[in-house]
Nucleic acid binder design. Structure first.
Length: 268
DNA sequence: GGCCAGGACTCAA
DNA sequence: TTGAGTCATGGC
Protein backbone atom coordinates (compact mmCIF):
# COMPACT_ATOMS: atom_id res chain seq x y z
CA UNK A 1 0.00 0.00 0.00
CA UNK A 2 2.97 2.27 0.54
CA UNK A 3 6.09 2.57 -1.52
CA UNK A 4 8.82 4.31 0.37
CA UNK A 5 12.12 5.84 -0.56
CA UNK A 6 14.48 7.85 1.59
CA UNK A 7 12.37 10.98 1.27
CA UNK A 8 9.12 10.05 -0.37
CA UNK A 9 6.03 7.95 -0.01
CA UNK A 10 3.83 6.87 -2.89
CA UNK A 11 0.39 5.52 -2.27
CA UNK A 12 -2.93 4.80 -3.91
CA UNK A 13 -5.71 6.88 -2.41
CA UNK A 14 -9.36 7.43 -3.08
CA UNK A 15 -10.37 11.08 -3.05
CA UNK A 16 -13.80 12.27 -3.98
CA UNK A 17 -14.55 8.86 -5.44
CA UNK A 18 -11.51 9.06 -7.72
CA UNK A 19 -8.71 6.54 -7.67
CA UNK A 20 -5.40 8.34 -7.51
CA UNK A 21 -1.81 7.45 -6.94
CA UNK A 22 0.02 10.25 -5.22
CA UNK A 23 3.63 10.80 -4.33
CA UNK A 24 4.52 12.93 -1.34
CA UNK A 25 7.94 14.41 -0.77
CA UNK A 26 9.07 17.29 1.39
CA UNK A 27 11.45 20.19 1.52
CA UNK A 28 12.26 22.06 4.71
CA UNK A 29 8.91 23.76 4.99
CA UNK A 30 6.39 21.99 2.83
CA UNK A 31 4.96 18.72 1.77
CA UNK A 32 4.99 18.41 -2.00
CA UNK A 33 2.26 16.30 -3.49
CA UNK A 34 2.29 14.99 -7.02
CA UNK A 35 -0.51 13.07 -8.67
CA UNK A 36 1.11 10.16 -10.47
CA UNK A 37 -2.06 8.60 -11.77
CA UNK A 38 -5.75 9.36 -11.97
CA UNK A 39 -7.92 12.37 -12.51
CA UNK A 40 -8.15 14.93 -9.75
CA UNK A 41 -11.21 17.15 -9.93
CA UNK A 42 -10.82 19.14 -6.78
CA UNK A 43 -7.40 19.92 -5.36
CA UNK A 44 -8.88 21.03 -2.08
CA UNK A 45 -10.16 17.56 -1.39
CA UNK A 46 -6.73 16.10 -1.93
CA UNK A 47 -5.32 18.78 0.32
CA UNK A 48 -7.79 17.78 3.00
CA UNK A 49 -6.76 14.17 2.61
CA UNK A 50 -3.10 15.04 3.00
CA UNK A 51 -3.84 17.18 6.02
CA UNK A 52 -5.63 14.34 7.67
CA UNK A 53 -3.10 11.72 6.71
CA UNK A 54 -0.12 13.57 8.15
CA UNK A 55 -2.02 15.52 10.79
CA UNK A 56 -0.30 18.50 9.25
CA UNK A 57 -2.27 21.36 10.68
CA UNK A 58 -1.98 20.48 14.32
CA UNK A 59 0.28 22.83 16.24
CA UNK A 60 2.56 20.61 18.28
CA UNK A 61 4.02 23.44 20.34
CA UNK A 62 1.95 22.72 23.46
CA UNK A 63 2.85 19.05 23.29
CA UNK A 64 6.54 19.82 23.00
CA UNK A 65 6.34 22.18 25.93
CA UNK A 66 4.85 19.47 28.10
CA UNK A 67 7.25 16.88 26.76
CA UNK A 68 10.33 19.03 27.31
CA UNK A 69 9.29 19.66 30.88
CA UNK A 70 9.09 15.96 31.62
CA UNK A 71 12.12 14.39 33.27
CA UNK A 72 12.08 11.08 31.43
CA UNK A 73 10.46 12.05 28.15
CA UNK A 74 12.16 15.38 27.60
CA UNK A 75 14.66 14.05 25.08
CA UNK A 76 11.87 13.01 22.73
CA UNK A 77 10.92 16.59 21.99
CA UNK A 78 14.22 16.93 20.16
CA UNK A 79 14.87 13.38 19.07
CA UNK A 80 11.47 12.94 17.47
CA UNK A 81 10.80 16.53 16.55
CA UNK A 82 8.31 16.77 13.74
CA UNK A 83 6.98 13.26 14.16
CA UNK A 84 3.25 13.36 13.68
CA UNK A 85 0.49 10.95 14.40
CA UNK A 86 0.11 9.36 11.01
CA UNK A 87 -3.53 8.86 10.29
CA UNK A 88 -5.30 5.98 8.63
CA UNK A 89 -8.05 7.92 6.85
CA UNK A 90 -10.23 4.87 6.20
CA UNK A 91 -11.96 3.77 9.39
CA UNK A 92 -12.68 0.34 7.98
CA UNK A 93 -9.03 -0.09 7.19
CA UNK A 94 -8.02 1.19 10.62
CA UNK A 95 -10.43 -1.19 12.30
CA UNK A 96 -9.27 -4.18 10.27
CA UNK A 97 -5.66 -3.33 10.93
CA UNK A 98 -6.19 -3.05 14.65
CA UNK A 99 -8.03 -6.35 14.75
CA UNK A 100 -5.27 -7.98 12.74
CA UNK A 101 -2.72 -6.53 15.13
CA UNK A 102 -4.34 -7.95 18.22
CA UNK A 103 -1.98 -10.14 20.20
CA UNK A 104 0.36 -11.09 17.39
CA UNK A 105 3.77 -9.77 16.56
CA UNK A 106 3.86 -6.91 14.10
CA UNK A 107 5.92 -8.74 11.52
CA UNK A 108 3.22 -11.32 11.19
CA UNK A 109 0.49 -8.70 11.38
CA UNK A 110 1.93 -6.86 8.39
CA UNK A 111 2.10 -10.14 6.53
CA UNK A 112 -1.57 -10.80 7.14
CA UNK A 113 -2.63 -7.34 6.07
CA UNK A 114 -0.53 -7.52 2.96
CA UNK A 115 -2.04 -10.85 1.96
CA UNK A 116 -5.54 -9.49 2.47
CA UNK A 117 -4.86 -6.33 0.51
CA UNK A 118 -3.19 -8.08 -2.39
CA UNK A 119 -5.96 -10.61 -2.72
CA UNK A 120 -9.04 -8.49 -2.15
CA UNK A 121 -7.97 -4.91 -2.78
CA UNK A 122 -8.01 -3.05 -6.06
CA UNK A 123 -4.82 -1.71 -7.53
CA UNK A 124 -3.32 0.73 -9.99
CA UNK A 125 -0.18 -0.19 -11.82
CA UNK A 126 2.51 2.33 -12.68
CA UNK A 127 5.76 1.27 -14.29
CA UNK A 128 5.18 -2.29 -13.27
CA UNK A 129 4.51 -1.43 -9.64
CA UNK A 130 1.09 -2.07 -8.19
CA UNK A 131 -0.39 0.37 -5.69
CA UNK A 132 -3.17 -1.16 -3.67
CA UNK A 133 -6.30 0.29 -2.18
CA UNK A 134 -7.54 -1.38 0.94
CA UNK A 135 -10.43 -3.77 0.18
CA UNK A 136 -13.93 -2.39 0.31
CA UNK A 137 -16.24 -3.56 3.10
CA UNK A 138 -18.57 -5.05 0.49
CA UNK A 139 -15.84 -7.38 -0.76
CA UNK A 140 -14.83 -8.54 2.70
CA UNK A 141 -18.43 -8.84 3.84
CA UNK A 142 -19.01 -11.41 1.12
CA UNK A 143 -16.20 -13.68 2.29
CA UNK A 144 -16.35 -16.80 4.37
CA UNK A 145 -14.22 -17.34 7.43
CA UNK A 146 -12.34 -20.02 5.52
CA UNK A 147 -11.30 -17.52 2.85
CA UNK A 148 -9.35 -15.56 5.43
CA UNK A 149 -8.20 -18.62 7.34
CA UNK A 150 -6.53 -19.73 4.13
CA UNK A 151 -4.36 -16.63 4.51
CA UNK A 152 -3.35 -17.61 8.07
CA UNK A 153 -5.95 -15.49 9.81
CA UNK A 154 -7.15 -17.14 12.97
CA UNK A 155 -10.79 -18.13 13.04
CA UNK A 156 -11.64 -15.30 15.44
CA UNK A 157 -9.85 -12.61 13.48
CA UNK A 158 -11.55 -13.78 10.30
CA UNK A 159 -14.89 -13.75 12.04
CA UNK A 160 -14.38 -10.31 13.59
CA UNK A 161 -13.25 -8.74 10.34
CA UNK A 162 -16.04 -10.17 8.22
CA UNK A 163 -18.57 -9.14 10.83
CA UNK A 164 -17.15 -5.61 10.91
CA UNK A 165 -17.24 -5.46 7.12
CA UNK A 166 -20.92 -6.32 7.22
CA UNK A 167 -21.58 -3.48 9.65
CA UNK A 168 -19.86 -1.01 7.34
CA UNK A 169 -21.58 -2.46 4.31
CA UNK A 170 -24.95 -2.15 6.00
CA UNK A 171 -24.20 1.43 6.95
CA UNK A 172 -24.49 0.73 10.65
CA UNK A 173 -20.96 1.99 11.18
CA UNK A 174 -19.29 4.71 9.17
CA UNK A 175 -16.73 7.39 9.61
CA UNK A 176 -19.22 10.23 9.42
CA UNK A 177 -21.51 8.51 11.86
CA UNK A 178 -18.69 8.01 14.35
CA UNK A 179 -17.45 11.55 13.94
CA UNK A 180 -20.94 12.76 14.74
CA UNK A 181 -20.83 11.15 18.16
CA UNK A 182 -19.24 12.42 21.34
CA UNK A 183 -15.92 10.86 22.29
CA UNK A 184 -17.64 8.67 24.86
CA UNK A 185 -20.29 7.48 22.47
CA UNK A 186 -17.71 6.79 19.79
CA UNK A 187 -15.91 4.57 22.19
CA UNK A 188 -19.11 2.77 23.11
CA UNK A 189 -20.09 2.31 19.48
CA UNK A 190 -16.72 0.80 18.67
CA UNK A 191 -16.55 -1.50 21.67
CA UNK A 192 -20.03 -2.77 20.79
CA UNK A 193 -18.53 -4.34 17.68
CA UNK A 194 -17.59 -7.95 18.23
CA UNK A 195 -13.84 -8.32 18.47
CA UNK A 196 -13.31 -4.72 19.45
CA UNK A 197 -12.11 -4.20 23.00
CA UNK A 198 -10.67 -1.22 24.83
CA UNK A 199 -7.36 -1.42 23.06
CA UNK A 200 -8.81 -1.61 19.58
CA UNK A 201 -11.38 1.11 20.13
CA UNK A 202 -8.76 3.54 21.35
CA UNK A 203 -6.44 2.60 18.53
CA UNK A 204 -9.08 3.34 15.94
CA UNK A 205 -9.99 6.61 17.62
CA UNK A 206 -6.43 7.87 17.72
CA UNK A 207 -5.42 6.58 14.32
CA UNK A 208 -8.48 7.28 12.26
CA UNK A 209 -10.83 9.69 14.02
CA UNK A 210 -8.34 12.38 14.97
CA UNK A 211 -8.90 11.87 18.65
CA UNK A 212 -5.70 12.81 20.46
CA UNK A 213 -6.82 11.72 23.91
CA UNK A 214 -7.17 8.00 23.24
CA UNK A 215 -4.86 5.62 25.07
CA UNK A 216 -4.74 1.99 23.96
CA UNK A 217 -4.77 0.69 27.52
CA UNK A 218 -2.98 -2.56 28.07
CA UNK A 219 -0.89 -2.18 24.94
CA UNK A 220 2.23 -4.26 25.45
CA UNK A 221 4.38 -1.86 23.45
CA UNK A 222 3.23 1.07 25.52
CA UNK A 223 3.86 -0.82 28.75
CA UNK A 224 7.29 -1.86 27.61
CA UNK A 225 8.16 1.73 26.75
CA UNK A 226 7.07 2.87 30.19
CA UNK A 227 9.23 0.16 31.73
CA UNK A 228 12.15 1.16 29.55
CA UNK A 229 11.83 4.69 30.87
CA UNK A 230 11.75 3.26 34.40
CA UNK A 231 8.38 4.81 35.08
CA UNK A 232 6.47 1.71 36.08
CA UNK A 233 7.51 -1.52 37.74
CA UNK A 234 4.24 -3.34 37.54
CA UNK A 235 2.38 -3.46 34.24
CA UNK A 236 -0.90 -3.66 36.11
CA UNK A 237 -0.26 -0.48 38.06
CA UNK A 238 -3.06 1.48 36.46
CA UNK A 239 -2.71 4.30 38.93
CA UNK A 240 0.91 4.98 38.01
CA UNK A 241 0.09 4.88 34.31
CA UNK A 242 -2.83 7.23 34.74
CA UNK A 243 -0.54 9.57 36.65
CA UNK A 244 1.90 9.71 33.75
CA UNK A 245 -0.77 10.45 31.19
CA UNK A 246 -2.48 13.00 33.39
CA UNK A 247 0.46 15.29 32.66
CA UNK A 248 -0.37 15.17 28.95
CA UNK A 249 -4.04 15.87 28.86
CA UNK A 250 -5.28 16.24 25.31
CA UNK A 251 -2.04 14.81 23.94
CA UNK A 252 -2.29 11.27 25.24
CA UNK A 253 -2.32 9.74 21.79
CA UNK A 254 0.71 11.72 20.77
CA UNK A 255 2.55 10.54 23.82
CA UNK A 256 1.63 6.95 22.98
CA UNK A 257 2.81 7.49 19.43
CA UNK A 258 6.13 8.89 20.63
CA UNK A 259 6.55 6.08 23.13
CA UNK A 260 5.97 3.52 20.40
CA UNK A 261 8.55 5.34 18.39
CA UNK A 262 10.98 5.12 21.28
CA UNK A 263 10.78 1.34 21.00
CA UNK A 264 12.01 1.45 17.42
CA UNK A 265 15.14 3.50 17.91
CA UNK A 266 18.34 2.87 19.87
CA UNK A 267 18.25 4.14 23.42
CA UNK A 268 19.08 7.78 23.79
C1' DG B 1 10.99 -25.59 22.33
C1' DG B 2 9.12 -22.11 25.03
C1' DC B 3 7.86 -17.55 25.58
C1' DC B 4 5.95 -13.68 23.53
C1' DA B 5 3.35 -10.64 20.44
C1' DG B 6 0.83 -2.88 19.47
C1' DG B 7 -6.01 -8.63 22.78
C1' DA B 8 -10.90 -10.22 23.06
C1' DC B 9 -14.23 -13.35 24.72
C1' DT B 10 -16.57 -16.14 28.16
C1' DC B 11 -17.85 -17.38 32.54
C1' DA B 12 -17.60 -17.53 37.40
C1' DA B 13 -17.50 -15.18 41.82
C1' DT C 1 -16.29 -5.18 38.24
C1' DT C 2 -12.39 -8.29 38.54
C1' DG C 3 -9.78 -12.44 37.55
C1' DA C 4 -8.70 -16.86 35.46
C1' DG C 5 -9.05 -19.67 31.55
C1' DT C 6 -9.32 -20.09 26.53
C1' DC C 7 -8.51 -19.05 21.78
C1' DA C 8 -5.10 -18.73 17.79
C1' DT C 9 -0.93 -18.35 14.85
C1' DG C 10 3.74 -17.19 13.90
C1' DG C 11 8.31 -14.81 15.18
C1' DC C 12 12.46 -15.24 17.45
Amino acid sequence: MYRLTENSVTKAVEVDGQQLVIKVTADDDNLIVKVESGQLNDELLLLAYINEWFDVQRDLTPFYQQLSAHGSFGYMAKSFEGLRLMNIPGVFEALCWSIIGQQINLTFAYKLKRAMVEKYGTSTEIDGVKYFNFPKPAVIAALNVDDLKAMQFSKQKADYIINAAKLFEAGEISKSQLLGLSIDDRFKALVAIKGVGIWTANYVMMKSLNDTSGIPHGDVGLLKALEDHALIKDRKDAKAIAGIFSQFEGWESYLVHYLWRSLAVPKA
